[in-house]
Simulated scan of single mutants.
Amino acid sequence: MRDFGVGFGYLVQGQKWVARHGRQFGFGLLPGLVTLVLYAGALVGLGFGADDLVAWATPFADDWSSPWLGLFRNALTALVFVFGLFLAVITFTAVTLLIGQPFYESLSEDVDRSEGGDVPESGHPLWRELWISARDSLRVVLRVALYGVLLFACGFIPVVGQTVVPALGFCVSGFFLAEELTAVALQRRGVELRERLTLLRGRRGVALGFGVPLTLAFLVPFVAVFLMPGAVAGATLMVRDLRGEQGDRAEDAEENDQEGGNLSSPGGDQGVYRIPLRKDHS
């Protein structure tokens, strides 16, 4: 639970960072707005067509008597829409990051710069960055789709399907959402997808603490758009600590602490307060 709280702390820190840097926040909203319009249209279409899709996919139930036919197809219709919403939450971040690649990469660099020390750059041209991002996002979405199919099938299990499965679904969504967001900073550092997943699995609680609350928040219309810039900023701060990177401001804070001074607080002039991470991977 401690790691979960640490991950949530990075999410809060990221929102505070963009609140202090209004220009980056404004630019970071644009890709989310475009993606939101596209996804809203897709979900509305799914809402109107899900019942027809279920009826087409279950012709064997046409002769069932009432009320079993209605109960069966209504349950399937609800599951189809939930599955579509599940995929929308996961792919929303990937599509938004792809559309807003230049905006979010610049925002992540500004976070690194504000923390002091080196500001990693991939050195790739924009088209190469977009290709890598699209390729890795597709690989992540395929993983999520596999989990989604398994969870969808488990949803038919009585009791478990209505309690445990939704909770597992949010955990899966949260973990991969954290991966997508940390990819902005890690891709600039030349870290490949396999290494990124290994890094997050080593601190799974931190990843879930960052991603699960964000997944829940993304279910509320328009919230995802406003949280995306801060989520990218928070993910960059998390990456710096998970990799043990320490900027000039963090070093100064440690020196002050050793001399009996106070650690800087979020929003202060000395940078963002660092939540300490345990060295073990338990």
Rank of each mutant, 00 (worst) to 15 (best):
F210N: 09
A217K: 04
L53H: 01
I90G: 00
L11K: 04
Q258R: 15
W127R: 13
T215W: 09
S108P: 07
N256P: 00
D110Y: 01
T215A: 15
A185L: 07
A42G: 08
L142N: 06
S264H: 11
Y147R: 01
D110W: 01
V89G: 04
Y39R: 02
E105N: 05
V6S: 09
T163L: 15
G169Y: 05
C171K: 00
T163P: 03
G84M: 07
R73Q: 14
V232M: 02
L76N: 12
P266F: 13
D280K: 06
G202D: 07
G244H: 07
D52F: 11
L69C: 00
G205A: 06
F210Q: 03
W127L: 14
S282G: 09
G174D: 09
G174M: 07
F156K: 05
P120V: 09
G32K: 04
R73P: 02
W131T: 07
H21S: 04
L30F: 10
S173G: 12
S264N: 05
G117S: 08
R113D: 08
F83W: 10
S106R: 15
G202Y: 04
W64H: 06
R240W: 03
L186T: 14
L69R: 15
R143T: 12
G84F: 07
L242P: 03
L150A: 15
G161W: 05
G211W: 05
A253S: 12
L219P: 00
F48P: 00
L97P: 02
G70F: 06
A40N: 03
G84R: 04
F170K: 07
M238W: 03
D3P: 13
E254V: 12
V149E: 05
A88M: 11
L216K: 01
P221A: 13
R143Y: 04
T182W: 03
D118K: 12
A88P: 00
I99M: 11
G267R: 06
A75M: 09
G155R: 05
Y273Q: 14
